[in-house]
């Protein structure tokens, strides 16, 4: 598969950017959200103690979801608007 096309885009917001050190980046060869979470925790151990939800293409997901090239996965800490 074309390397560029196999990438997913990651977005981090709020306090999570203090942990990830960046707010947008790309990752390759990720097949599902469980695998993604494990890789992220390996890279940023503090994520294991952080409360956040995942949104895939702007939809909040629960449980494991298969990822496709081009998907946008956002790490959303608890909302605090208003």
């Amino acid at each position: 598969m074309d390397k560029v096309k196999s990438k997913i885009t990651l977005l981090a917001f709020g306090q999570l950017t203090d942990i990830t050190g960046q707010s947008t980046w790309q990752m390759e060869d990720i097949t599902d959200t469980d695998q993604l979470k494990n890789i992220l925790i390996e890279k940023h151990p503090a994520l294991a103690n952080s409360k956040y939800l995942l949104a895939v293409n702007m939809e909040i997901i629960r449980g494991n979801v298969k990822l496709n090239p081009g998907d946008v996965v956002a790490l959303l800490p608890p909302f605090s608007g208003g």
Binding site: F13, G14, A55, A74, L76, P77, F79, G81, G82
Partner: peptide, 11 residues
């Protein structure tokens, strides 16, 4: 609904 569902963060 805004408080619970809209992705906004306050520092």
């Amino acid at each position: 609904r805004i408080k619970h569902e809209v992705p906004v963060w306050g520092k």
